[in-house]
């Protein structure tokens, strides 16, 4: 299986321009014979929307997404968008396959500390779902979702095989840490403890001085980074993975074998 990550910059609040960019990179990924392309969080509208949430949010059946749906006959596509529903807004991801919406995940944990103000504008999702795709069982998380142990418990309980994380993660650093180390640690650990692939798709570009660092990557079920994209650069990043590695990793470390999952958690 060949996975592509569209590590893109976005135009703040301009859905039309951003969707065009998604279409462009999707076409390139199809040319490169990729099976799946993953774009970042809020890829069709930009991250720090503030009051632009009201005009940049779309329903999943909006005509803006028609062309991407059509392209999903040739490649599975995952992207983040601001979702409008009954007058409320969600930070969501859409998984398209065979011309249809296979899943929508509404971000469950909306950060509202430090520089973040997502909870001011968005309503939280209620569930973390795992769904069947042509490649196996997939769970999508959006950025902050992945910092919550309960999300990883859900993927564990649901026997996820590919965890997809869409992110708009801003850069910061201090004398003993770089922001991406946090992501690498979380994703490697999750992959290792669950024996699944993790695809981390992060955006690039600046919004009023806040820089999204990129460095998207894919982690193997053994917890190794297979390939990592560049720091700050927009690029289409593609890598082959062997889905049999999931089974191999679980044979080597059959962690879930002796676990009775508690249905009330996760």
């Amino acid at each position: 299986m060949k996975i592509a990550i569209g590590q893109i910059d976005t135009v703040l609040g301009d859905v039309e321009k951003n969707v065009k960019k998604l279409e462009h990179y999707t076409d390139k990924a199809i040319e490169e014979k990729c099976d799946l392309i993953v774009f970042p969080e809020l890829a069709v509208c930009g991250y720090s929307l503030r009051d632009l949430v009201y005009t940049s949010s779309k329903t999943p059946d909006d005509p803006a997404f028609l062309s991407l749906k059509e392209k999903s006959n040739y490649i599975d596509i995952v992207f983040g968008f601001a979702q409008k529903e009954s007058g409320y807004f969600f930070n969501s991801s859409m998984y398209l396959s065979n011309g249809e919406i296979l899943n929508i995940h509404k971000k469950r944990f909306l950060p509202d500390y430090g520089m973040f103000e997502e909870q001011r504008y968005f309503s939280p999702g209620q569930t973390i779902d795992t769904f069947k795709t042509k490649f196996g069982k997939v769970t999508t998380l959006i950025c902050e979702d992945a910092f919550h142990i309960s999300s990883h418990y859900a993927t564990f309980k649901n026997e996820t095989e590919i965890l997809i994380i869409l992110s708009a993660s801003p850069f910061w650093s201090d004398h003993n840490s770089m922001k991406w180390e946090l992501w690498e640690n979380v994703c490697k650990t999750s992959a290792q403890l669950n024996g699944y692939f993790v695809i981390f798709s992060n955006r690039v570009g600046f919004e009023d001085g806040v820089g999204f660092f990129g460095k998207s990557f894919i982690v193997s079920p053994n917890g190794h980074i297979i390939k990592e994209a560049s720091f700050l650069k927009e690029e289409l990043f593609a890598s082959e993975i062997d889905l049999r590695d999931i089974e191999r990793a679980r044979l080597f470390m059959p962690i879930r074998k002796n676990e009775v999952c508690n249905e009330s958690i996760g």
Partner: peptide, 22 residues
Amino acid sequence: LDKLKIDCEFISSYLIEFVRQE
């Protein structure tokens, strides 16, 4: 003062991109 150490390679490339893009 060691707590204020920065990774000059990453910070300079970050600031160059900031100026270029913004």
